[in-house]
Amino acid sequence: MDALTKIMHHFIAHQDEYVNLFPGKYVVIRADFRTAGAFDSKEDARKCAMSITDMPAAFYPAVPGEKAYTITLRSI
């Protein structure tokens, strides 16, 4: 399993904790499962995740439910 998939599984397993600690924020999670930051904007979270160069990182909105980690793609 790649690092980003592991981060996603970690987020899902601990989603309730992230929602309680950082409600409505975008949470940046490193591949070692440490929280790198919590931000009001998606752009700030993206910048933080991109600045982590020693390991993969991802960000998720700290909101309840599947919407936090599910995307829908549509073709036109």
Rank of each mutant, 00 (worst) to 15 (best):
A45W: 00
P23Q: 11
A68G: 06
M8H: 12
M50A: 12
P64Y: 12
G65I: 11
V28M: 01
P23S: 10
A58G: 02
G37W: 00
P56L: 12
I76F: 08
P64L: 15
K67T: 03
A58D: 04
F33D: 03
A68I: 05
V19S: 03
G65C: 13
M50C: 06
H10K: 03
R46H: 03
Y26M: 11
A57E: 07
G24I: 04
D16F: 14
G24D: 06
I7M: 09
F22S: 13
I52R: 01
H14D: 06
F11A: 09
A58L: 11
A31N: 07
K25N: 07
T53E: 10
H9R: 13
G24K: 00
P64G: 10
M50P: 00
L4S: 15
R46S: 09
A57F: 12
K42I: 03
I76Y: 10
R74P: 00
V27K: 06
A62T: 09
M55C: 08
F39W: 10
Y18P: 02
N20G: 15
I76C: 09
M8N: 12
I76V: 07
K47Y: 06
K42D: 05
F11M: 13
G65Q: 14
I7Q: 06
A31T: 06
P23V: 14
M8T: 15
Q15H: 15
A13H: 11
Q15W: 14
D32H: 00
M55E: 11
Y18A: 01
C48A: 14
Q15G: 14
L73W: 02
R46N: 04
M1W: 12
P61T: 05
V19E: 10
L21K: 15
Y18F: 15
K47D: 08
H14S: 05
K25Y: 07
P23R: 11
K6I: 04
A36I: 06
D2Q: 14
F33Y: 03
D54T: 07
H9I: 03
T70Y: 05
D44S: 14
P61L: 04
A62K: 12
R30S: 09
F33P: 01
M50H: 10
A3K: 12
C48W: 00
A13I: 08
S51H: 10
K67I: 04
R46C: 02
G24T: 08
I52G: 02
K67G: 06
G65F: 10
H10G: 04
G37H: 06
Y69A: 07
Q15Y: 13
I12K: 15
V63M: 09
H14V: 03
K25C: 10
T35S: 10
M50T: 07
F39A: 09
V19T: 14
F33G: 01
V63N: 04
R30E: 04
D54E: 11
M55T: 13
G24P: 01
A57P: 13
